[in-house]
Structures are given as structure tokens and as C-alpha cells.
């Protein structure tokens, strides 16, 4: 059995050696907010935070993450108590179909933790590791800037 710390809870679960972290989070823990799209580390949909850093969970082994602190979209906010980044994405319409949104929000969280007051260009560059097939990118950059504003208070 392997011990994984996810969203502040410690889980003891069986993990197959070749199982990716994204599969472990989805299939073993039911955290379906972790989306897998390309499965090759290019689209950013599966982005989660590991010890505060954004990582493509499709390219990491589940067992590699033992002992690390993992945060998924489920650890960000609740329906009744949204995280300011989630509020900003809703207010600025930073999505259309929503499939890529969890990955974008996790990337936004990591980015704003390191740069609380970004320029539009910095926000745009920081979101370049995620792909939105609906093409909401301009609204996503606005969402990031709005979220920064909200967090700064």
C-alpha cells in the first residue's frame, strides 16, 4: 500500500507501478476534476499542484508522488465557497465547455502564488502550458488578472 497526500487528506491505496498519477487520482480516488486530454504533457489539462508546483500528472508515476503534497481542483473551493480564482473565471467567462478549466485554474494558482501582481503579458505567458480548444484564451488571461486582483484584496 502507498500513502498519498491529496487535498489535505492522507490515503493508503494500492498503486500499480506503471500507473500515472492522473490515473491514480481519477480511478482510485475518484477525483474526476483531474482531466486527461493529450496524455503527453502538452495540453495541461491534467495539471495538479505537487508541493505547490504545477505538474502534468499524466507524465508522473503515482508512486513517484508518495510523500508529496498534492492539490487538485477538488481542493480549491466548494460549490458554496468558491476559491477567488474560480469566481474570477466565472465572472470573466474564462471557459466555454469547461473541460480544460481545472488545469487552467491549477496553473493559475501556481502562477499567482509566485507572481501576485502580473502584467497581461506575464499572465498570457504563464497560461501557455494549457490549451483551450474552445479558444477562450483572451478571457482566460482576463480571468487570471481578475483573480490576482481579488486575491490581493
Amino acid at each position: 500500500m502507498y500513502k498519498l497526500n491529496v487535498n489535505g487528506t492522507s490515503y493508503e491505496i494500492d498503486i500499480t507501478a506503471s500507473e500515472s498519477l492522473s490515473d491514480v487520482l481519477r480511478d482510485r480516488l475518484g477525483l474526476l476534476g483531474v482531466k486527461v486530454s493529450c496524455g503527453e504533457g502538452e495540453c495541461g489539462s491534467c495539471t495538479v499542484l505537487v508541493d505547490g508546483k504545477p505538474e502534468t500528472s499524466c507524465l508522473k508515476l503515482g508512486r513517484q508522488a508518495e510523500g508529496q503534497e498534492i492539490t487538485t481542483i477538488e481542493g480549491m473551493g466548494t460549490y458554496d465557497d468558491l476559491h477567488p480564482i474560480q469566481e474570477a473565471y466565472i465572472e470573466e467567462q474564462g471557459f466555454q465547455c469547461g473541460f480544460c478549466t481545472p488545469g487552467f485554474i491549477m496553473a493559475t494558482k501556481a502562477f499567482l502564488d509566485s507572481n501576485p501582481n502580473p502584467t497581461e503579458e506575464e499572465a498570457s505567458e504563464a497560461m501557455s502550458g494549457n490549451i483551450c480548444r474552445c479558444g477562450a484564451h483572451p478571457y482566460i488571461v482576463k480571468s487570471v488578472l481578475k483573480a490576482a486582483e481579488k486575491i490581493r484584496g
Binding site: G41, E42, G44, V50, P54, E55, T56, S128, N130
Partner: peptide, 9 residues
């Protein structure tokens, strides 16, 4: 090289 979330790995 690649993207931020892959560079961390």
C-alpha cells in the same frame, strides 16, 4: 522547452 507544468518534472 515544453511547458511550465512539464518543466517542473
Amino acid at each position: 522547452m515544453c511547458t511550465k507544468q512539464t518543466r517542473t518534472l
